[in-house]
Design a protein around this nucleic acid. Structure first.
Lengths: 191, 191
DNA sequence: CGGTAAAGTCATCATTTGACTACTTCTTTA
DNA sequence: TAAAGAAGTAGTCAAATGATGACTTTACCG
């Protein structure tokens, strides 16, 4: 467990504290929303003093903005590089795994906590980059941008029903079955 | 303007006040979420004294629960009676009109304000009734329930991107164009 | 009328919350 | 090892919020 010269074993670690706050913010924000989460909640979840939110982020809003902006690694690479035919499954897998992953910072989850103007703007930008821009660029034919956003809409809707609302069939469906139907729905858009 | 015997022209009207509070609650809740809306906000929007929230509903939570439960007229009739082939368009129209309608109590809008456990449960029940039960009953073949919920997922996703996030193409797309693609996506599920 | 109950108002309480500051403790380094 | 600065703590303030109860106004009925 030698930390090496680049990572001295500090008991007080600003970077680690910052990261803990960001993780806690993402977790709670995706569960309860921005307004429903206090800085004290976040600090408690991170196991850290509440005042440190202000030391490291300046304000609650900036904390949540950074949490939203740096959450999941963006799907941009996937969308750019995955063969179109495989894309529905690959993106679906991301959505399905989002909840199981402790971070819970996936678009589909985070997006549901978005009653805050600033967080909403960040989400819009991420979605537009991934779908309206990158995916649309790979589509031929008319209405490429709209068709790309419809692919996003399906994924958001599935994530929403499965992780947030928890409807019967959607919550229990396995990856394979869901994949078959998502393929069929998305195919006419990519075609 | 004779109010008649059944509707005495009272300057003080409990029923009207109650209704005004419910409407205001729906409007603000769908915009800012439950936690982001105070009882004072609701009372002000309704043009009514804040204490009346407690006279008529007992608590903020009960006000929002009733607002969520009694909001939009449910799409159950549409889902039961519309020819399957027309259903995508008909449901899409409901989603598109939701934002323009002042009430803004449509599932697609309300659903996005749902970080409250109770409201979420109500939403789940409404969605399951409409899709997992009523629509599923009209579908042949395997996975009827899941396929029905996928129809719901598309609509929720579209409503979300259009009304809440406001992505470029989705916000500006006209009913006709959108209808074409929604038809193509939903067809494999209904078939 | 005049009394009564419903409808509505007002002031206020106890908490919570975002934010800030003064202070203590640890870690590094000269 | 001692100085200095970074990391962390504790306490507190002002505003906002859910909730309540005492009070006033209005409408109706005998």
């Amino acid at each position: 467990m030698d930390a090496g010269p680049t990572t001295p074993p500090r008991r007080r670690d600003a970077a680690a504290t910052r990261a803990a706050l960001l993780n806690a913010a993402r977790t709670l924000m995706s569960q309860r929303g921005v307004e429903g989460t206090s800085t004290r909640d976040v600090a408690a979840e991170a196991g850290v003093n509440q005042a440190l939110v202000y030391r490291y982020f300046g304000s609650k809003e900036k904390l949540f903005a950074e949490a939203a902006a740096t959450g999941a690694d963006s799907p941009d690479d996937l969308i750019t590089n995955t063969p179109l035919a495989d894309l529905p499954r690959v993106l679906l897998d991301r959505i399905l795994l989002a909840a199981e992953a402790a971070e819970a910072a996936e678009l589909s989850t985070l997006v549901t906590a978005t009653n805050d103007e600033h967080v909403r703007a960040i989400m819009r930008e991420r979605i537009e980059t991934a779908f309206s821009t990158l995916l649309a660029a790979r589509l031929d034919g008319p209405d490429a941008e709209l068709r790309a956003e419809l692919v996003g809409a399906i994924l958001v809707g599935i994530g929403f029903l499965r992780h947030k609302i928890g409807t019967r069939a959607m919550s229990t469906a396995d990856r394979e079955t869901l994949g078959v139907y998502v393929d069929r729905m998305v195919a006419p858009l990519l075609g």
